[in-house]
Design a protein around this nucleic acid. Structure first.
Lengths: 189, 189, 189, 189
DNA sequence: AATGAATGAGGATTCATTCAT
DNA sequence: GATGAATGAATCCTCATTCAT
């Protein structure tokens, strides 16, 4: 029996290891060797599958974003029509991709996006999707969904940042954003 | 007798060069050689004056924070009594330390704070000061200054992040935060 | 499958090269680069296999001591019962590990032992073993084997030193120690 | 009043500092900066007076040898005619230049002599003088002063080495050499 | 497919030495 | 005489990457 289908397994393992290691180090200054070791293979194989360090990182980022997207998608599906905004906000602070490890990877993602074309593109996709989701869930609930969505997106990111750096986790984070949302929607109403 | 009093000059030049180079690279992955070259001296001299790479970075961060603090201090002094909150918000998006270069250094500062004791301490000081300033300026204007300050601080950071990553500068950033502030203060009024 | 089993070969080559290079330089001030080059590999590989300069040195010292010990062991086995002392003395001045190169390494070993824990430990082992061997071979031939062994050990080291520094090799060295041994054993007889 | 005669003072201070620092480090791997600092001046001045690191070391060695020679000279003068050998042996283990610091410098001197012409010459002078002194003091007391002197010189060096490395000082060292001397002189007498 | 082997390039750091004042 | 300033060269070490098997 030949070992078949090893490639996807290996890639998955490497992606998971990357998130893991970056999370632990709190930095993108991790070596391919560390990642490969964590994934239980040689660094040569990591290169073989991904082509280079940058691509490994990118795959890890893509994974984080995919998990996040899925989380959001499910939350929106499950939410009652009038509660989409609240569900969306909550989804941004709950779920597997918001573990401390992922947060660290996420933070570094922001930095990477400054230089790296691919990272910047991925990040833009995330931002557009979040903005779009927010706008949709705000439709019919306020006069300027565009602006409110933009504000709430920033609020979400800011709360992330602070939660990530405080080391105290996401407790109370969603509530802060909901608070802002309520205030903005009550305005002049 | 030797040439004298070069140390402060050199240190200043190195700090400026560090902010500069980090800003351009969008990353802390810059070499002491790059920094020293930009500052017009040998890397050996940079080590001589600062002792090591970490200390050079730290001095740069301290410089950025000092500039920011000064900006805020002046804004608060100049503001009429009832306009302190607005002045404070504006001060966070205007001024010399919010050039693209400084923003990049700032972003990387967040990441560094995850691993580096000293960076974390500096960052905490910034956060406490911002929170404290916000709270003071909210006193007498709402029921829960503590909570509102916390929300606005996150909003400020989030707007930073987005402005920094969009590459479009700070246009409209302060207005977004002011918008949130207005909404939160009007609440239940 | 990769080329395999190179590690022991490389380690051996590096150890030999280390002794060689130190011998030529007459000093521990040799670079990993020099050693690696002599061993026919990159300095990176030397680090890969040994972890660092100190460990390379230590391995070289261990090698020299092992060779010496083997030399002594064989000499003692081969010696007739009544001639053990003489055989032991001779063994200290004959043999592969007393080439000029090894002597130089040996000399530097003394110096290194002043600072380096590991080197000091190794040296102590050598000294204890020599002392113990001498004492055993002196048993039944004098009243105070402990003291005589101590004196002869020092004599051996001293003759080393002088032979090493004179650059004229070990000619007549063993005979000097044998001379002392005879004199000490004849005492008060 | 101009500062005159500073040069000899500075040189003396540097020589003393060199012995000091080498003794502490247990190695010749000391920097000119360390030496100069210990001597209370800038490293530039050290270079100015000595021309380079090698010459500083050499001056320190010369100093140690001079002290040693003086010690021996005085001992020989003070010794009664028939006790010159014993006085000479004792002089090799007593005196200011056999402090732990000097021993360390001495040990390193041996190593340096392997490469450095000047150091080798100095060392040879010491060895010749010791040998000559021993030979003279052995004249009329044995048949082969040349050989006995050679053996005792080696014994003295060997005992040095062991005493220096044991860290227990020179206790009992002279007595060991005297013991050998007695034995050699009693031979076949 | 998988990996041990191997390296070149690069980076932080140190230090003897020189120089201008 | 004396020193702060300054640097080039060298060294250890790391790491992404390539290669042969």
């Amino acid at each position: 029996m030949p070992k078949i289908g090893q490639e996807p397994l290996r890639r998955k393992a490497l992606v998971a290891a990357t998130v893991d290691v970056i999370g632990e180090a709190g930095s993108l200054d991790v070596t391919v060797g560390q990642i490969a070791k964590r994934a239980g293979m040689s660094s040569a194989l990591a290169h073989h599958y991904f082509g280079g360090k940058a691509q490994i990182f990118l795959a890890a980022m893509r994974h984080i974003l995919a998990e996040y997207s899925e989380e959001v998608r499910l939350a929106l599906i499950a939410a009652p029509a009038g509660q989409r905004l609240e569900a969306l906000i909550d989804a941004n602070f709950v779920g597997s991709c918001f573990t401390p490890a992922a947060i660290s990877a996420w933070l570094n993602f922001y930095v990477l996006a400054q230089r790296d074309e691919d990272a910047a593109r991925l990040l833009k996709i995330y931002q557009r999707r979040l903005h779009s989701n927010l706008k949709h869930s705000l439709k019919d609930r306020c006069k300027d969904p565009q602006e409110i969505a933009s504000i709430l997106a920033a609020q979400i990111d800011g709360v992330y940042l602070r939660a990530a750096l405080s080391g105290k986790g996401m407790q109370g984070a969603a509530e802060k954003v909901r608070h802002v949302a309520r205030a903005l929607l009550e305005e002049k109403a």
